[in-house]
Amino acid sequence: MTAAFRPFRMKANNDQNDGELLRLMLAGDEDALTLLYRRRQAAIYRFALQMSGSPSVAEDVTQEVFLFLMRQGHVFDAARGSLPSFLLGVARNYVLRRLRGEQLLVTLADDYEDEVASEQTRTEPGLLEELTRAETIEAVRKAILSLPERYREVVVLCELQELSYVETAEILGCAIGTVRSRLHRARSLLLTKLRPAEQADQTTEVTVKSARCFA
């Protein structure tokens, strides 16, 4: 009995890095697709969910990202960044397209955000401690969703996905300094949004009246 000649073909396994799995997937290896999907789907789904607040949008975006990878995975260039960053960049584009197309969320106007960010945020201690854990999480989630897109994506990537400034800059296609300054403004906006209404009034008054200490 003679063994039929078969060309040598590497099988996908979990020890292989993302680049190798992608190459095998593009060559038609279904196992590579499965491994790659299981390895990277959660981050993409969470990113889309945190950006949109909609599980259905997050699901659609995750699917679109992997379909894009199947069709045009050859455009990935390892020299320009890692595959997770590439996938999150693709996911970001799909999310923004959905958000802008469907107007799922109402964002703050630019003049308002600049006005709020420019003022020095003053918050009383124990602001978030007064809330229960579940309430805190829900409040933070809503506050993030109400941020303008450019601040929201920085908070999601740097705070919730815990990516470095460098990785975030790769995904957003901007400078590291831009990421840092946007994050700073985004946190100021979040503190303002999380402040209770009565405290906000007092704080605003205090902010106006108080002279800054330059000790």
């Binding site: 945020t121 003053r122 918050t123 009383e124 201690p125 124990g126 602001l127 978030l128 401690e129 854990r133 805190t136 999480i137 409040a139 933070v140 989630r141 993030i144 908070v155 705070e159 919730l160 815990e162 946190r187 979040l190 503190l191 999380l194």
Partner: peptide, 13 residues
Amino acid sequence: AEEHLTRGLHALK
């Protein structure tokens, strides 16, 4: 306030 915010974000994460 910033530290409280960080804790809130961490809890959400």
